[in-house]
Design a protein around this nucleic acid. Structure first.
Lengths: 203, 203
DNA sequence: CAATTTAACTTAACACTGTTAACCTGAGCT
DNA sequence: AGCTCAGGTTAACAGTGTTAAGTTAAATTG
């Protein structure tokens, strides 16, 4: 009736699904709970989504898009590639800290649970990689960065950052270590790895 | 009767639980399945474990111990700190590649699912951190490594490696990127980050 | 040795879960 | 007016973690 935004119920389901996820966590996320809070029968969800995973992946998709926009807008003003990397890393970290449950959603889904879904869904996620790839290429051209395989290096960049945030969010950090210091130090460490190693003919 | 090893049933449950986990994956791991394969009623598991999470944590614990031993034995022969880091990283990666489901078990458990368990269980996991901490300290003393906070740096070391393996195991890697090259390059990248920068005759 | 406590195990049941099949209902088109 | 069919429903299946209550056999005690 009201022609809310997208197609009525589907949008509503997605919205309350995200609410449930944010308030109860992935562990306690169930279709029936989403249905209850949407004033719909549980089976109605199946009219709009193939199954639970499909709904979860839709949420994941939206989150990835959100994160990518969050990142893309941030480096428009910057010029220096190293500065860009810094901005990207810090934005990524902040996103994870501010939206831990949504962030975890992106990664919690293991390959097994993924398997029945097409890789096509990962295409969008690549935007983030492409961004770093081109920043690295710029850096190489400017003689600031030493990388033979920028695309590969871009994957390494995100993988390292993810590892850092994974440790932080799962609260595995030694109590003697300050979280902020850990993150700051990690970013420095990761980015240093890309800088030209001066006065040293690497290999 | 047969006084198997530890305490009869408990050991048996753990063993078949690990089998189920390895064959069916964490996603399809259920107490009832474990019970069925152990020729025991499902409720019997509760005589030996507080609940499902407790059993899973026991498996996790054993896996961490296994991984730590795997790592500890590897650096006994080596002398050079940089070489030690290399060995540790490679062993870690191999463990993850050879035992992906056990490896994921260590990390899949999110903080939420953890929360009702004492941090005390994480103590054992720290052995790995301590190992790297002391290697880094040796390196600093030998003038090969530049680190002001070795313990913090040790955490970064593992976090980065975990991030890399997380991306690899969840099959998120771009198809144009070779897995082996990615891992090799990542390790180089991570370790380079620890070497002394500036003019230096290392190697 | 007999009585009793206790540990190890069982069955039955509760309140959930994802998912499917069968049914209904009303708007739009021919 | 009759038909199709998208969008919704209820009922049911097979499975889950977990608890309560009952059994049974071994160990401990008087």
């Amino acid at each position: 009736m009201a022609q809310t935004q997208e197609k009525g119920l589907k949008r509503k389901i997605i919205t309350t699904a995200r609410q449930v996820l944010l308030s109860d966590g992935y562990h306690n996320f169930s279709l029936r709970k989403v249905a209850r809070k949407s004033d719909v029968s549980a089976t109605s969800i199946y009219l709009h989504f193939e199954n639970k995973d499909d709904l979860v992946h839709t949420l994941m998709d939206e989150t990835i898009r959100k994160l990518n926009n969050h990142l893309k807008n941030s480096i428009k003003q910057a010029i220096d590639p190293i500065e860009k990397l810094n901005i990207l890393a810090n934005r990524y970290v902040n996103f994870a800290l501010e939206n831990p449950r949504e962030y975890q959603l992106i990664y919690v889904i293991s390959s097994e649970e993924m398997s029945r879904y097409p890789k096509e869904k990962f295409r969008k996620a690549r935007k983030g990689y492409e961004m770093v790839t081109s920043v690295l290429e710029d850096g190489v051209r400017a003689g600031l960065i030493d990388e033979k395989h920028p695309r590969l290096a871009a994957y390494i960049f995100w993988a390292q950052l993810h590892g850092v945030m994974s440790v932080v969010l799962s609260k595995r950090l030694d109590t003697r270590i300050d979280q902020k210091a850990f993150i700051k130090e990690s970013i420095d460490h990761i980015i240093n790895g890309y800088k030209i190693r001066t006065a040293l003919k690497t290999e």
